[in-house]
Amino acid sequence: MGFKLLSKLLVYLTASIMAIASPLAFSVDSSGEYPTVSEIPVGEVRLYQIADGVWSHIATQSFDGAVYPSNGLIVRDGDELLLIDTAWGAKNTAALLAEIEKQIGLPVTRAVSTHFHDDRVGGVDVLRAAGVATYASPSTRRLAEVEGNEIPTHSLEGLSSSGDAVRFGPVELFYPGAAHSTDNLIVYVPSASVLYGGCAIYELSRTSAGNVADADLAEWPTSIERIQQHYPEAQFVIPGHGLPGGLDLLKHTTNVVKAHTNRSVVE
């Protein structure tokens, strides 16, 4: 069995187990497998329904001669939608809004960016022009300005110390501490036991640490421990890039980060 097929099978099995364990909360999309990078042309966006009122959005972007996937989250909030992270750029984010209108038909009224990198804030200006209120932590807003990236308009308070959590509509926002970046936030959907790890969490097929220019490698494993301790009931975990899975993604990420750190020390 090929690795790609095995990865998709694991996603399907995880979703099936969740649907059985929580039949009222989960209505997993039966329309197909989780979209992969090879299936999404740059400039297009796919939506994948995880649970009743919960979707991931998947886009792709060219970077350094390669094409990478990027995940975000959409959560229903009454007759409105909360968006977590842009679709990595203005063109993708405009396509995301169009796809949401086509498939869901509810307005996106608020959006949260989970850290300051372009795959999370690139497209904020498109959201703002569409009347979406954009939010991020003060740290993310400051770092985005320093980096020359787009800056969300509103500040999220109460997320300055490791372990801080605040309720934001249908989700809980959690600051686990520094990891992929010093400002990275985690998003949890309690009604569906869905954990969105953003770039602080890796997919299972990833074996290298990737972009760690703004990471705190020493603190990252401790931050992941905080996530595990705060959300032990999480059933569906979405990484910032690639295929979702279960809580095993947290341990896998820790292993990859520690291996990278150990290699760096040896070198």
Rank of each mutant, 00 (worst) to 15 (best):
2 G>V: 06
4 K>M: 12
4 K>I: 11
5 L>A: 12
5 L>V: 15
6 L>S: 14
6 L>Y: 10
8 K>V: 10
8 K>C: 14
9 L>T: 14
9 L>E: 14
10 L>E: 13
13 L>A: 14
15 A>P: 14
16 S>L: 08
17 I>V: 10
17 I>T: 08
19 A>I: 15
20 I>R: 05
20 I>N: 14
20 I>A: 13
26 F>Q: 15
27 S>W: 12
28 V>D: 10
30 S>R: 11
33 E>D: 09
33 E>M: 08
33 E>S: 08
35 P>V: 14
36 T>M: 14
39 E>I: 12
40 I>P: 15
41 P>F: 09
42 V>Q: 11
43 G>E: 12
45 V>Y: 03
46 R>G: 10
50 I>L: 07
50 I>D: 01
58 I>E: 10
60 T>E: 07
61 Q>P: 04
62 S>E: 07
67 V>H: 15
68 Y>C: 04
72 G>W: 02
77 D>W: 08
77 D>H: 09
79 D>W: 09
79 D>A: 10
81 L>P: 03
83 L>K: 01
85 D>I: 00
86 T>G: 01
86 T>S: 02
89 G>N: 03
90 A>I: 08
90 A>N: 08
91 K>E: 15
92 N>Y: 04
93 T>I: 03
94 A>I: 14
95 A>Q: 12
97 L>V: 05
98 A>D: 10
107 P>D: 09
108 V>Q: 00
111 A>E: 13
111 A>D: 04
114 T>F: 04
116 F>N: 03
116 F>P: 01
119 D>N: 05
121 V>I: 07
124 V>N: 05
124 V>K: 02
126 V>Y: 09
126 V>Q: 05
127 L>E: 00
127 L>I: 04
132 V>R: 02
134 T>W: 01
134 T>L: 01
136 A>D: 03
137 S>M: 14
138 P>L: 08
140 T>R: 03
140 T>Y: 05
141 R>C: 06
146 V>H: 13
148 G>I: 04
158 G>M: 09
162 S>C: 06
167 R>V: 11
167 R>Y: 11
168 F>G: 02
174 F>C: 02
175 Y>S: 01
178 A>G: 14
178 A>N: 09
179 A>D: 03
182 T>S: 12
183 D>Q: 01
188 Y>W: 13
190 P>V: 08
190 P>H: 07
191 S>I: 09
191 S>N: 11
194 V>H: 03
195 L>I: 07
196 Y>G: 00
199 C>I: 02
210 G>A: 06
210 G>R: 05
211 N>G: 09
211 N>M: 10
213 A>T: 10
215 A>V: 06
215 A>N: 05
216 D>N: 12
217 L>V: 13
219 E>R: 08
219 E>T: 10
220 W>G: 01
220 W>E: 01
222 T>D: 13
224 I>H: 01
228 Q>D: 08
233 E>G: 11
236 F>Y: 06
237 V>F: 05
240 G>D: 05
241 H>P: 04
241 H>W: 00
245 G>V: 02
246 G>S: 12
247 L>E: 11
248 D>S: 13
248 D>P: 10
250 L>E: 03
250 L>R: 00
251 K>M: 14
252 H>E: 01
255 N>Y: 09
257 V>E: 03
257 V>P: 01
258 K>C: 07
259 A>D: 14
259 A>V: 10
260 H>Y: 09
262 N>V: 10
263 R>I: 13
263 R>G: 14
